[in-house]
Amino acid sequence: MDYIAGELEFIWVNDGYIITDRSQLDRLRREQNFQMSGEVDDETAVSIGKFAGANIIVTGRVDGEGNLQRLRLRALDTQTAQVVGVASERL
């Protein structure tokens, strides 16, 4: 998963996006005393992104098993929580 995150960061930074890495989000989450366990849901991700000053936040997960795994990404607008983009790619 670190490899995928690194590749996405490389692509997006080269396309001109400003990336906030996970360690910054973790620090922000602690500061706001978010009580989360397991996956970050869309509502929490939007709240974290808004607090960090982001316009868009991308969440992702890997679904499936073995040769049937897929990476699924969602781009969420932090002002409206609207899904503004999705992607699904076989791993």
Rank of each mutant, 00 (worst) to 15 (best):
M1V: 03
M1N: 09
M1T: 05
D2C: 09
I4Q: 08
A5S: 11
E7P: 05
L8M: 13
F10T: 08
I11S: 11
W12I: 01
W12S: 07
V13D: 12
V13G: 08
V13M: 13
D15R: 15
G16W: 06
G16V: 05
T20H: 09
D21T: 08
D21W: 15
R22K: 13
S23Q: 11
L25T: 01
R27F: 06
R27A: 09
R27M: 04
L28W: 01
R29W: 00
R30C: 02
E31C: 01
F34P: 00
Q35N: 13
Q35R: 12
S37N: 12
E39W: 09
V40Y: 02
V40W: 05
E43A: 11
E43Y: 15
A45T: 03
V46H: 07
S47P: 00
G49F: 00
G49M: 00
G49S: 00
A52C: 05
G53A: 04
A54N: 10
A54Q: 08
N55S: 14
I56W: 02
V58Q: 01
V58T: 07
T59A: 04
G60T: 01
G60Q: 03
R61C: 04
V62G: 03
D63I: 05
G64Q: 03
N67L: 10
N67D: 13
N67V: 02
L68S: 13
L68E: 15
Q69A: 09
Q69R: 14
R70L: 12
L71V: 14
L71H: 08
L71C: 06
L71T: 04
L73P: 00
A75Q: 05
A75W: 05
A75V: 10
Q82A: 14
V83Y: 04
V83S: 11
V84Y: 02
V86I: 11
E89F: 11
L91C: 02
L91Q: 06
